[in-house]
Design a protein around this nucleic acid. Structure first.
Lengths: 356, 356
DNA sequence: GTTAGCACTCATTTGAATCGAGTGCTAATC
DNA sequence: GATTAGCACTCGATTCAAATGAGTGCTAAC
C-alpha cells in the first residue's frame, strides 16, 4: 500500500514533459472544436498513431492528477480545467507579436464622434470573432481644458462649448438672466480662455476663480455659471463610464453557455453596465498589455464559465479605455488575441493620423 | 347530419354576449397570471360559481369556434388567440385616459443630453414593467439651422458647432489650411448666421451659397468647408436613427419566450438596430397615438410570439420618436398602456419646461 | 515503457406504463 | 330551452427501467 504510494506518478511528475504537452494541447484543441469531452481514442487518432489510446489514458490520468484537465463524470472524456487553459494561453501569449492581419474597412475616416467609432468597432469585433465584444469609452485621466466658447444661441440662452484635451467636445445650453452684449460676450470668451486653457479641473483653484471674477466685473455671475457647468461636464464624463457591447447573443452559439439559466445570467450581466465596469476597470497593470481571465479568474460571478480577454487601448494624452472579448472557455484564443492586437494597432494608427 | 349542422352554435352566434365576454376576459386574465393554458374548471371557480364547468366548456367551445381562443393540443386548456388579445386590448384602449400615476424620480432635471435621458428612460421602463423597452432617438423632420459657430481651437484646426432647431447640437473639428485672423473669424460667423439661420438643409440653394461666397471674398473656401460639414452632420443624423433598448433579458421571465430557440432569435433581433427600425419606423398614423401589435400583427418575424406596444412622443417642433415595450402576448396591457401614457406626459412636461 | 484486452462506470437514449388535466358528448334536471 | 352532472376519451407530461455506448482504470503481455 504505502509502497505503492511511492510509485504514484503524479506525486513525482512535477514538470510537463514533451509528450504531456502534446497531449494536453491536443485535448484542448479538440475540445475547442467540438465542445464535447474528449476521450483517449480520439486523441490517439489525432496524434497520428504515435501512441496508443492506452498510453494516452495513462498520461491523461497524470494530467488530471496534476490539475490540467478534469472529468465531468466518471465515464466521460476529459475537458481542460482553468489551469489547463491557463497553460495553453500562456504559451500563445509568449509567441511573437507579428502577423498583423488586415481588418476590413474600419471606416474610421471622417467619423467625427469617437462614440460612433467605438460602437462600430464593437460590432465588428463581435462579428469577426463570434463572441461577445465589449468596449469602454475612454477615461480621460487628465482632463485638460483646451478651449471654451460661449455663444448666445437664443434670447436668454447661452451655449457653452467645452473642448478638452484629445478633442473631446461637450455642449451645454443654459438659461441665463443677465444680458450680455456681443462685445461683452467676446470679452468673456477671451477672459475664460486666457485663464483656463491648459488647466485640469483640479488646477482651477480659488485664486484663479477670484481673479477671473474680478476681471469679469459686473458679470462675475457668468463666470460662476460657466465654471459650474464645466465642472459638471467633466465630472459627469468621468463618472459614468460608457460601455458598449455587441454580439451578446453570440453566446447562443456555444451550447455550454446557452442553457437557460446561464444564458439569462450572462446576458443580464452584459446588459448592466455596473458589473462590466469591474471587468474593464481593473486595468492599470499591463500597459497596452492584453489580459486573459479564464473562468473564476475574472471575479465576476456570471462569467465563471467564460473567458474574458481584455486589451487596453490608448489614444495618446492619457486617453485610454478597454476592449474586451467574452466567450466560452474554449474560445479560439489565438484568433482573439491576434484580432485584438490588430485592432489596437489600427485604432492607434487611425487616431495618430487624425491627430496629425 | 345536415340537420345537425343547422343546430351548430358557432355559425349563428355572431356577437359576443355578456357571458362570453366575462368568460373570455377571465381566460385572458388567468392566462396572463400563470402563462399556462386555462381549463373550464379554473374559470368556473374564478367566476364564483356563477356557472358550472360544463357550461363554461360549452361557451369555451363557442369561443374557440369564433376564433378568440385556441387549444394548444386536444387535452389542454385554452389560451387566447391573437384575436382574443385584440378584443381585450381594444376594450382597454377605449377606457378613459385618466389616472396618471407617478413615475419615480425621472431625473430629467439638469441632464443636458437627450440621449442620456432616453437611455435612462428605457431602463426605467424596462424595470417598471418587467418587459423589454425600446426607445428611438428623435427624428428631426424639419432640420432648421438655428445657430452656427466657428472657432479656432488649435493651430490649423477649426471647430464647427451646429445648433439645430430643438437645441440639437453637433460638433466637428476639421483641419483647415487657410489662416484666419480673429476678426476674419468673427466676420465669417456673422456671415454664416445671417445667411443660414432658420433655414432647413433643403432651403440652402445655390443662390444662397454663391451669395455667401461672394460675401466671403478670399475665404470662399471656408464657406464650402462649413457647408459640406453641416450637410454631413444633418444627413448623418437623419440617416442612422439611434435606438436604445433595455431590459432585453426580461424575456427570460416568461417561459413561453425563453426556450433557447426563441430567446436567441428575439434577443438577436433586439440587438440589431436594423429590424427594430421597422417596429418604430411605421408611425405617422396615430398622432400621439398608442399602438398595439399582437403577435403576427407586427410583421417582424422574431416577434410573432410577442406583443409590441408603441407610443410616439413629440417634443415640439416636429421632433418626435417612438417608445416601445416588448413582452409576451400575455403582457399586462393595462399596466403597460398606463405606464406609457404617464411617461409621455412626463416627457412632454419636462421638455416643455426646459424649453421655457 | 508501451499496448492489447477486458471489466466496469455512468450519462444518455429509448420506450412502455402511468398519470392527470381537460375536453366533448349525453342524459338528467331545473 | 338552458344548465349541469357524469363519463369516456385524448394526449402531453412524468416516471421508471432497460439498453446503449463512450470512455476509463487496471492487469498482463510484449
Amino acid at each position: 500500500m504505502s509502497a505503492n504510494n511511492f510509485k504514484r506518478k503524479g506525486v513525482r511528475t512535477v514538470e510537463l514533459d514533451e509528450r504531456k504537452i502534446t497531449i494536453l494541447k491536443a485535448i484542448i484543441k479538440n475540445y475547442m472544436d467540438t465542445g464535447e469531452p474528449v476521450g483517449s481514442r480520439t486523441i490517439s487518432k489525432y496524434v497520428e498513431s504515435k501512441w496508443s489510446s492506452a498510453t494516452i489514458r495513462n498520461e491523461m490520468s497524470d494530467l488530471e492528477e496534476m490539475g490540467y484537465i478534469v472529468q465531468p463524470h466518471t465515464s466521460a472524456g476529459r475537458i481542460p480545467s482553468d489551469k489547463g487553459y491557463r497553460f495553453y494561453v500562456d504559451q500563445i501569449l509568449q509567441e511573437k507579436n507579428s502577423e498583423v492581419a488586415e481588418i476590413q474597412e474600419l471606416m474610421i475616416q471622417r467619423v467625427d464622434r469617437l462614440e460612433s467609432v467605438l460602437k462600430k468597432l464593437a460590432k465588428l469585433l463581435a462579428r469577426d470573432t463570434n463572441y461577445a465584444a465589449l468596449i469602454s469609452g475612454p477615461r480621460y485621466h487628465e482632463n485638460k481644458l483646451k478651449f471654451l466658447q460661449l455663444s448666445r444661441v437664443d434670447e436668454g440662452k447661452l451655449l457653452i462649448v467645452t473642448v478638452l484635451e484629445g478633442n473631446l467636445i461637450k455642449n451645454t445650453i443654459v438659461p441665463v438672466t443677465e444680458q450680455l452684449s456681443d462685445e461683452e460676450l467676446l470679452n468673456m470668451n477671451i477672459l475664460l480662455n486666457s485663464n483656463l486653457n491648459g488647466l485640469t479641473i483640479e488646477e482651477i483653484n480659488l485664486e484663479i476663480i477670484s481673479r477671473m471674477k474680478q476681471q469679469a466685473g459686473s458679470h462675475a455671475g457668468i463666470v460662476d455659471l460657466v465654471l459650474s457647468h464645466v465642472a459638471e461636464v467633466i465630472h459627469a464624463d468621468s463618472e459614468d463610464l460608457q460601455i458598449y457591447t455587441s454580439g451578446a447573443t453570440n453566446i447562443f452559439k456555444y451550447p455550454e453557455l446557452s442553457d437557460n439559466q446561464k444564458a439569462s445570467e450572462l446576458l443580464s450581466t452584459l446588459e448592466h453596465t455596473e458589473t462590466l465596469k469591474d471587468l474593464v476597470g481593473g486595468d492599470e497593470k499591463g500597459e497596452t498589455g492584453i489580459q486573459v481571465y479564464i473562468g473564476e479568474e475574472s471575479q465576476v460571478q456570471a462569467m465563471r464559465d467564460c473567458s474574458v480577454v481584455t486589451a487596453n487601448y490608448e489614444l495618446g494624452e492619457g486617453i485610454r479605455g478597454t476592449i474586451g472579448i467574452i466567450g466560452p472557455k474554449r474560445m479560439d484564443y489565438e484568433k482573439v488575441l491576434k484580432t485584438l492586437r490588430t485592432v489596437m494597432t489600427q485604432l492607434d494608427a487611425a487616431f495618430k493620423k487624425e491627430e496629425r
